[in-house]
Amino acid sequence: MLLTSEAVTNAINACVGKHCTTPVTLYAGWSDPHRLRVLVHDEAPGLPTCRTPTPDAEDGRGIQLISYGSDAWGVCTHGPGPGKATWFELGR
């Protein structure tokens, strides 16, 4: 739940900053019987980056958490329409 929350929050924040007119979309399902894949799509331009925030920063850890907490993750820009999808996978 934490990783999904971080991915959705990142997408919403990107859209608010870029004035997107379409909603953020969340997909989740088993990519095979042993791996859960979560994908969050938004139409904001730009790609998320893994930052190293200062210890007292209140944001900037979302992609770090996804990177550390998942078995695999990435960002894809192919597909219909603008924007990108951030995805991650977890083993059972």
Rank of each mutant, 00 (worst) to 15 (best):
T21S: 10
D56M: 00
T25A: 13
P80T: 12
A85L: 05
K18Q: 13
T77V: 14
R51Q: 09
H78A: 12
N13L: 13
T52W: 02
A57K: 00
V8W: 05
H41Q: 13
S70R: 06
C50W: 04
G17Q: 14
A72H: 09
K18E: 11
I12S: 00
A28V: 12
W30S: 08
V75I: 09
P33T: 05
E6S: 13
T22K: 07
A85H: 08
Y68L: 12
S5K: 12
T77N: 10
G81N: 03
G29S: 10
H41L: 08
V16F: 11
T77E: 14
R37V: 14
A14S: 08
G81S: 06
T86I: 14
I63A: 08
K84R: 15
F88N: 05
S67I: 00
K84C: 08
D59A: 15
W30N: 11
G60C: 09
T49N: 01
A7S: 10
T25V: 15
V75R: 06
C50N: 12
G81R: 04
P48V: 04
D56F: 03
S31A: 15
P23V: 08
N10L: 11
L26S: 04
E6H: 14
L65V: 12
K18P: 00
P48G: 07
H19Y: 14
I66R: 04
E58P: 00
D59S: 15
T25F: 03
V8H: 01
L36H: 01
Y68F: 12
A14R: 08
Y68W: 11
C20V: 02
T86N: 05
C15L: 03
L26F: 03
A57L: 02
E89T: 15
P53V: 09
A85Y: 11
H19Q: 15
K84S: 13
G62C: 03
L39H: 07
I63Q: 07
G74Q: 03
V38H: 07
G29K: 09
P48A: 09
H41G: 10
N10W: 02
P45C: 03
D59V: 15
G29W: 05
H34T: 15
D42I: 04
P53L: 06
P45Y: 02
P45A: 04
A14P: 00
A44K: 07
R92F: 10
R51P: 01
L2Q: 15
E58V: 11
